[in-house]
Design a protein around this nucleic acid. Structure first.
Lengths: 257, 257
DNA sequence: CAATGATTCTTTATGCCGTAAAGTATCGAC
DNA sequence: GTCGATACTTTACGGCATAAAGAATCATTG
């Protein structure tokens, strides 16, 4: 499920995101929960079960029914927005520029990488329209601050911010979903690949002749860390070398005029 | 919903993907449907309704119940795999290298961009593990063939293939989801942003002081095509300038050693 | 040529999901 | 003490994927 951000009542959503509620002394029973408690619980559940978590599961973790959550939060979509922004609070708001922009961007990318592997469900929240929460702003501000120091104009900066963002998200998604799929089926990467490649070659014996360039692409491979499973190793290697290429491109843009 | 690929019985899945069925003269009523008919219908439905299409909807389009599909296809996951690979048949299997690798990659990227905007649900099929269908192979083979011509070693090629792929997917996802969100709520980009920015500034008046670099990022903007809606214009601009940076990075790698 | 068993497709049913609607209990304000 | 707002539960609804069972149709076999 991809959850589209920001579809509810704008005022209500944004007030929730920025915690701009004025909870005075109100009649009725004291609230036993809070938006924060619900969001934290939901993040825990999503970390374990992925984005297909249920309102029931979040309620149960808090010792309530699913419907109790609707007292604090308009619906699941809005809850996901809140989770998205809340999780981003884990990330640094700024990076030192002592050694220039390149190490800073690299660190930003690595932080995001690790962040996504902690919260893979984040990768399934739509990026089309920003959630407009404070921490989401802070994370992009951090990257923008680094790249603005290159002195490049706004237009090029937007392209670069996008490219870096897409790249990190894409790379992270590959590992994240490999883990999720592996975890869901209890099937390791090697087993998965072994079972399928055998069938594949049986059904299509001259596979390598049909797709020779893919074979070239598979050459020159050596594990970064032999402890890591197959696909994950691949992903780490691709992340490093892909980021290098991307940043070389930025360097070219900075060097030129 | 993100659909994880390749979770069913490997043999059954791969036989379906490569259409390796030996349908002889069998007893029982003649099949009124076929895997191809079902996959085509499902693609049509998904193009209209997105990945959250239902088996019922596909069945109805074919004049059958949802359960009838299960005669031909093990389940929804496998159907999505088939849709994924089938749709990719629309893409070219090779690109001319007459003008070198850079125009070829650019054309590949643009083709993918347009392809994803025709079939946005494709972006929600997990990339973690390949579907292992013939057309998916062909599409990557096409990109690989272009990049192998740079003469770069396998390790760097894998990173570049990944980066280009991630970038195109990410960029396409942004527009696709903007359109989907807009279509779902009937809310245009401008209206959406207008409603929210007002509330945002009301709740957090010194937003620009808190995130000054984001403001810098927004400078120097002029519409590529004034006909296009706000966010879409942004996406096109970012796609062009981001791809340029990325390919400059590849050029640097090619020039170096 | 009737009986058998495989095959296609429908019907029905199960257990999930998000959430609407209505009911119960608890509190502050008057 | 009453009233109305609030927190939370219970029940219910429509939608989902799909399991299970049954009806209809055909090639094969005796």
């Amino acid at each position: 499920m991809v959850v589209y951000a920001g579809q509810g009542d704008p005022r209500r959503s944004i007030e929730l995101l920025w915690r701009a509620s004025v909870a005075e002394n109100r009649p009725g029973p004291k609230p036993g929960l809070s938006v924060d408690a619900i969001v934290d619980a939901a993040i825990e559940v999503a970390d374990e079960q992925g984005m297909a978590f249920s309102m029931r599961a979040v309620g149960e973790r808090l010792g309530r029914t699913a419907m109790a959550l609707y007292t604090y939060v308009p619906g699941k979509n809005e809850l996901v927005d809140l989770m998205y922004d809340r999780a981003m609070a884990e990330l640094p708001a700024s990076y030192p520029l002592d050694d220039g922009w390149r190490p800073a961007v690299t660190r930003w990318a690595h932080d995001m990488w690790e962040f996504y592997s902690r919260h893979p469900w984040m990768l399934q929240v739509s990026q089309a329209r920003p959630v407009l929460g404070p921490h989401e702003f802070a994370v992009i501000e951090a990257l923008a601050a680094i790249l603005v120091s290159t002195g490049l104009p706004g237009r090029e900066l937007r392209g670069i911010v996008g490219a870096v963002n897409y790249f990190v998200r894409g790379a992270a998604q590959t590992v994240a979903e490999a883990r999720a799929a592996g975890g869901a089926t209890g099937e390791g990467d090697e087993e998965w690949w072994y079972a399928r490649s055998a069938v594949l070659l049986e059904i299509e014996p001259d596979l390598e002749k049909k797709f020779p360039m893919l074979h070239v692409l598979e050459s020159d491979r050596e594990p970064v860390d032999p402890e890591l499973p197959y696909l994950e190793n691949d992903a780490v290697e691709n992340f490093r070398s892909g980021l290098k290429v991307l940043l070389d491109g930025v360097e070219a843009a900075v060097a030129k005029p």
